[in-house]
Design a binder for these strands. Sequence first.
RNA 1: UGGGGUGUAGCCAAGUGGUAAGGCAGCGGGUUUUGAUCCCGCCAUGCGGAGGUUCGAACCCUCCCACCCCAGCCA
Length: 577
Amino acid sequence: MTVDSTSTHADSVDKPQATADSRPLHFLEQIIQKDIDQYTAAQQSSDQQGDYKIVTRFPPEPNGYLHIGHAKSICLNFGLAEKFNGICHLRFDDTNPAKEDQEYIDAILNDVEWLGYEWEGEVRFASSYFQQLHDWAVHLIEQGNAYVCHLTADEAREYRGTLTEAGKNSPYRERSVAENVAEFAKMRQGEYDEGVCVLRAKIDMSSPNINMRDPIMYRIRKQDHHQTGDEWCIYPNYDFAHGQEDAIEGITHSICTLEFADHRPLYEWFTEHLPVPSRPKQYEFGRLNLNYTVTSKRKLKQLVDEGYVDGWDDPRMPTIAGLRRRGVSAAAIRKFCEMIGVTKSDGVVDVGMLEHAIRDDLDKNAPRAMCVLNPLKVVLTNYPEDKTEVMTAAGHPNRDDLGERILPFSQQIYIDQDDFREEANKKYKRLVVGKRVRLRNAYVIEADSCIKDDSGNIIEVHARVIEGTLGNNPEDGIKPKGVIQWVDSKQHATFDTALYDRLFTDESPDSGDKNFLDTINPNSVEKKLACIGEIGLLDAPIGVTYQFEREGYFCKDSHAETFLFNRTIGLRDTFVG
RNA sequence: UGGGGUGUAGCCAAGUGGUAAGGCAGCGGGUUUUGAUCCCGCCAUGCGGAGGUUCGAACCCUCCCACCCCAGCCA
């Protein structure tokens, strides 16, 4: 075994840093590195014992499927834990039973695992902390820091003020502790209908930060919860739940997206006013925006619910499940997340970057195969009618571990309609009457003529095999200009393919006041029936993406009743002319 | 007009007072039984703008501009 000069020994697991083969530390990594350094320094100047392990968490709400934007967060949180020898929890932030569902929990768990990450311990649920959260709410009431407010939603909105005007105190703000305790108990007992009252933190109605204007801690929802059943009829709001959940779990770095930056003072207010077991810190990063793509659970759900796509895992969806079904590997998604970086600026990443990551991974790992999308019969007039040869080809041009495949070859074969022309200019490197072309992994052939149907369509080509060209160039020195794929007419696989294009024609379907539904690409999928592929494809397992040479990457669909291959993505095509 | 955040190439992104990394895209060339891959080269006298400090500024100071987020009993 050889070790390259930049690698270090396995025992040096500390201090990740920028080296020749890795990017510089991003801002969150720098913060964590500093925290670790500080702890280490403090440890050396005192008797402090024990390790400092960072603890992060990925906290999805189970109200939809995970998408590529979530992948960024997953890679960040799990990646950070991995890099700094810490741990990462998976916790469902399930504080709103109205929008959540067990189906989403199952899907999310599956997606995170598929991406290749392992969470520490059991899967966690915010809902398993409901009793503690409730008791802490009572604690705040008893300290005079929370009150039950009977303002209606509309009234509360008026009292809240605006961006430029301070809010007004609720008339219920000065209720006594005893009354608040009693009222909150009535809420919890189910004595009030939904919307009648809420529990609010008593902070500051004139704060320039609207989140601090006596935010709601608990609201009444007479609704069964997917985890706790009918145990509760009051549910905590995000702000009253998230920080405490983190504190309970000993999260050291609670990472969320930019829009929560305004909530940080509140996050801190609750943990400061409550006897929580730890004091996590919140940090924000810029969420992923991808052009030609929608990354909003609400909008993705709408596409599913209104039938614009076939489900959350439709291959055109930017969901993890959709990408997987399309044939994208977990490694490609991780590579992409690595490429785009982590910052606080909110830019729009070109979807071309994702495509690059996908091609880059597939080029290295996808087994090769030949497939003809638009079959055109070629009769090799100088080849015996009853003969069949068996050609062999590498599973991958530069990976022996992908083995070899077997390609029957006989007098009649299929090539793609696009690979033959009666006449063409010099730029055309495929089969032309009177010219030669190399059949990939087989002979060089030369076309003599073609047969057309009544409407002038070419339906058959007559050609000749140039002898001695298996693995060699023609002896007469006339080399073919190009190479095309082919499939034997007797022994092959027949299947359909689905060619996908971007789901939206607009670069930013999400922006401005346009309706993203209006920008849906009417041609986002093109099905081709009865494509012909090499015989080995009959055994294609689900989960393997192949490169159909000169065409693109394809994988067998995991749902279809028919024999169907989904095109993951085409090959890069720089052919101009 | 309140508060929070962000501005470095078409896009993402390093840079933390010493003279603008890297990736994507693009362009030019080479290899090739995939018009793929791979390899080589090119691609910011310039860092939102204007002043200032300094021998020296993308980095420090001042003012200005643009964009994003916040007025759910969503997260």
